[in-house]
């Protein structure tokens, strides 16, 4: 492993160390404002009542679930094509975060669905494809864990991430197709009137808060991975010298 390998990560660690507190602070501020607006200021929905407030967590989480997978796929492509030493770390670090957001979206959706639809779960196209996305995250993380050699694991996981990224639109399309065949167009559609600004603003602020949280966590996880690698390299050097 040449010195160039660590040159870039060292600079990154310094930069990340400087950005991380700001991202964390931004997350806290946005989350406070967003939660206040969502839970206190925003009006209850005339049909859904206070249940609608779940949306302020659910929708940003669902957005982040898709955003994280896109991020994961792009980072994997960069890792495979340019062999950028940080890209596969970024991909690895983003996977558990994305999986957690996906899980959060599924759980909050389920909690919302119980009073609204009268059931915890329906095999709605959207729910089903998010569930499959969750499995894709799990597979990606499991592959990282299963291969011992870190370099190989990174490349194999990157191949899987790209295969998954090609498949996500196909799966989405096929599930939509399946759903329209097996279920009549149902009341579950969200084609309500355009969202009112008293709800839109807290939603957007919450989305930004989630994004800032993602950056904070991503940087923290990447620094942790880099430090782990350094510890491993130092131990190896100690033993061989």
């Amino acid at each position: 492993m040449s010195i160039h390998y660590f040159a870039n990560p060292a600079r990154f660690t310094r930069l990340a160390g400087r950005i991380q507190p700001w991202a964390g602070g931004l997350t806290a501020v946005l989350l406070l404002i967003g939660l206040y607006m969502a839970l206190v200021e925003a009006p209850a929905d005339y049909q859904q009542g206070d249940t609608v407030r779940i949306m302020f967590v659910h929708v940003p989480a669902a957005w982040m679930a898709m955003f994280c997978y896109t991020f994961l796929a792009v980072a994997s492509a960069v890792a495979l094509i340019w062999r950028h030493p940080l890209a596969d770390l970024a991909a690895k670090a983003s996977a558990p975060i994305g999986a957690s957001f996906t899980f959060l979206a599924l759980v909050t959706g389920s909690i919302w669905g119980k009073p609204m639809w009268g059931t915890w779960w329906v095999w709605d196209a959207r729910l089903t494809s998010v569930l499959i996305l969750f499995f894709l995250y799990l597979g990606y993380m499991a592959l990282w864990e299963a291969i011992e050699d870190g370099q190989k694991a990174g490349k194999a996981a990157a191949v899987l991430a790209l295969v998954g990224a090609v498949n996500v639109p196909i799966i989405k399309f096929s599930v939509d197709w399946w759903n329209t065949l097996h279920q009549p167009a149902s009341v579950l559609r969200m084609d309500g009137p355009a969202i009112h600004s008293s709800m839109l603003w807290p939603l957007l602020i919450m989305a930004l808060a989630f994004k800032a949280y993602f950056v904070t966590l991503l940087l923290a996880r990447m620094r942790m991975e880099l430090n782990l690698r350094r510890i491993r390299a130092m131990r190896l050097a100690e033993r061989t010298s």
Partner: peptide
């Protein structure tokens, strides 16, 4: 992908089954 993984059977199903879904549906 699971060639070098010892006892990769369960992992293989986790990787492959989600990708099989479109084939199953159509």
């Amino acid at each position: 992908l699971t060639l070098t993984v010892r006892r990769g059977g369960v992992l293989l199903s986790l990787l492959v089954l989600p990708l099989y879904i479109p084939v199953l549906i159509f």
